Computed example of a mutant assay.
Amino acid sequence: MQTEAVEKYLKTIYEIQQQGGRVKTTTLAQTLGVTAGSVTDMIKRLASLRPKLVSHELHKGVALTPRGKKIALNVIRRHRLLETFLNRVLGFSWDEVHEEAKNLEHHISDRLTDAIAEYLNHPRYDPHGDPIPEKDGKIKPDNYRSLAATPVGESVRIARVQHNDAELLRYLDQLDIRLETIVTVVEKAPFEGPLSIRVGAVRQAPVRSLGLNVADEIMVEPISNAHSL
């Protein structure tokens, strides 16, 4: 049975798996804010369904089955389409949409999801630059790199912000750092110090300072490869 709890687990497993490998139950418990016992019970339940939604190997962790992955991607599709609708149609800012979409993603039908996609002309990316899965579960891969890894003197375009933390997004807004913004790395301080970046395409654009941990959350692409939202 596909309940809200099941969807939350599958979505969370998928997101952690994107970092590589199987998911430890302790990591899953910490991410979801539940006890290890609760995770163990749910994993057993998901693995006992037919078709089963996860595979679990003792001491190796959990991985989604193809069926589990399909459900997880459908939840992510709903979430990112809701974020885009809230932003484009209702005027919510990019720091507001994540929590609102999180509250709604388990409560809309596939029919409404498809209608939102149609109304928005099938957007490819959400307000944070995350790719929106297609109806069949396909998701566009990217080859972005972090702003922190960009060489001094190179100009790039902001393509994605990996962290949905509202405070971080508001901070970036204050620095005029948003999707599609062109930035140039002016200087990198030694010993993992901050980056100085020129925000804007003109030489007279303001220079801002970003901590390395923040710059690592900002994904960029060459200007010639810029995508369309």
Rank of each mutant, 00 (worst) to 15 (best):
E96K: 09
K70W: 05
K70F: 10
L147K: 04
F191Y: 13
L90D: 03
A5N: 11
T150D: 06
L46Q: 10
E4Q: 13
T25W: 00
L172Q: 01
G211C: 06
R145T: 12
A36L: 13
G91A: 03
I132N: 08
V199N: 06
P194N: 08
K188L: 06
V220P: 01
R124C: 08
T113H: 02
P194V: 00
L195F: 03
D114Q: 08
E217C: 08
E167C: 01
L82S: 09
N121S: 12
N164V: 03
A166R: 03
V220N: 11
T65C: 14
I71T: 12
G21V: 07
L53N: 08
H56T: 02
K138W: 04
L179A: 10
D165K: 06
K44L: 13
R77L: 11
P222K: 03
T65D: 13
T3I: 02
T184R: 08
S209E: 12
D114V: 02
Q2K: 09
V97K: 04
K44S: 14
Q19R: 14
V183N: 09
T3A: 09
S224F: 11
E118C: 06
D216Y: 09
S93Y: 07
P127V: 06
D176L: 02
S228C: 13
G20M: 11
T25V: 08
M42F: 02
A159I: 01
P222S: 12
I13E: 07
R67K: 14
L120V: 04
G200S: 07
R88V: 03
V39T: 06
L81K: 02
L81C: 09
V34N: 14
V186D: 13
R88D: 15
L229E: 12
N87L: 04
T27M: 12
R203L: 14
P141Y: 07
K188Y: 04
I182T: 00
A148T: 00
D114K: 06
S155A: 15
N87S: 15
S109F: 07
